[in-house]
Amino acid sequence: MFPEDFVEWASISETKKGRRVIRFAALGSGSRGNAMVVQTARTTVLIDCGFGQRELARRLGRLDLATDVVDAILVTHEHSDHIGGAAACARRHDIPLYMTHGTCSAGLRQGDSADNLDIRLIDGHAPFEIGDFEVRPFPVPHDAREPVQFTLSDGCRRFGMLTDIGVATPHVIDMLSVCDALVLECNHDAQMLASGNYPFALKQRIAGRLGHLENSAAAEILARLDRKRLQHVLAAHLSEHNNTPALAGAALAAILDCDPAWIGIASQDQGSEWRTIS
């Protein structure tokens, strides 16, 4: 169920302003598992589910949520740190799974059965609705079958998410401009990756056009966006071996000309606290 203080506050806000309230939080972000929750007082959406059921319940509990409040799971792509727990969670709690045909095909081929699953195939360019949200998927360059990322809007406010991408396309910039809140991948620092002990082939994959965003590349994307409504920036998918929160925060803060402490960090173990789009 929803925490009473959030429902009460959201109700008061809606009554006063005639608008809905959106809040979001990371349950965890990194190579060992990813999940993001985005919520209004009436709709709760999980973006990715890379944790097993017990761990997911524990992480939701940290935010005073239970798994049975989740209305839908959006899956960005088939890599196990994003889809690993999605089928079991969806099957147990009768939650619909939204994913592209390519993600579904590749994900199920890795061992999940479609039995007793409500799978809703999406077009990577076509918007659709889940409760209070209009969801807009958009394709991204990444080494997966048909990967997408998402924006979610209630008609007044817009949440955007961008992780697991090698390079930004003009379409990505268009989709993420004029967001009120942005979750942005800052996977690695180029120097740390180059001097680290990863195998050369893995370094090439991470730094390649279908890999992950380096801090300066994430900052460049942020610089290209229309940021006039931006209230929150959360750095996500940080490598535990090739990046630090200080480096990621400093790169993004330089673009926004703000204190690096203002940049939120979604960690692997703790995720993040709730952030509310006002």
Rank of each mutant, 00 (worst) to 15 (best):
P260R: 04
I130V: 14
Q191M: 10
G50H: 05
I277E: 07
I83L: 15
S216G: 08
C89L: 15
D68C: 02
T40D: 10
G166C: 03
C104V: 13
S13G: 01
A236F: 05
T276N: 02
T163I: 15
G124W: 04
G85D: 09
G52P: 03
L182F: 01
S11W: 04
H125W: 08
R91A: 14
D94L: 09
Q39L: 07
C49T: 07
A114C: 11
L184W: 09
D112S: 12
N242F: 04
G264T: 02
I265G: 13
I119W: 00
R157L: 06
T169S: 13
G264V: 00
V140Q: 11
P96D: 09
T67D: 09
G28I: 05
P127Q: 12
R20N: 10
E214P: 03
T163F: 10
V70G: 01
A266D: 02
V172P: 11
D81K: 06
G131R: 02
D269L: 12
C156T: 09
A66V: 15
N215V: 06
A25D: 02
S13T: 02
G33N: 11
E146I: 01
G249I: 00
V38E: 10
L63S: 04
D143C: 09
T67A: 14
F2K: 14
S80T: 11
F51C: 12
D154Y: 02
Q191L: 12
G107Y: 10
A246T: 06
A35K: 08
A218E: 09
G111T: 07
G33T: 10
L252K: 05
D132E: 02
A106N: 04
G18H: 06
I130T: 07
V70E: 03
G102Q: 13
H212C: 14
A190V: 14
L252C: 00
T103M: 11
I221D: 01
G160T: 06
G84N: 03
H93D: 14
A88V: 12
A219H: 08
L121P: 01
G50A: 08
G124R: 15
H237Q: 12
I263E: 10
D180I: 06
K17F: 00
F133W: 05
D64L: 07
V233S: 06
S278I: 08
A251C: 01
A250K: 12
C104N: 13
I130G: 12
L222Y: 05
L56H: 08
D257C: 07
R20F: 00
I277L: 15
T76L: 08
Q191V: 10
P96F: 03
F128C: 07
K228E: 13
T244L: 08
R205D: 07
L234K: 04
V233H: 08
R91P: 11
A41V: 03
V135H: 04
A72W: 03
L97W: 09
S278A: 15
G160V: 07
T163S: 11
I22M: 09
V21R: 14
L60Q: 05
R54N: 15
D94N: 12
W262I: 07
E55R: 10
L27Q: 08
Y98L: 09
A26Y: 10
M99W: 14
S113Q: 05
S31R: 09
L184P: 03
F200L: 13
G249L: 03
A218I: 04
P141Q: 04
R158E: 08
P147L: 02
F6P: 11
D226G: 05
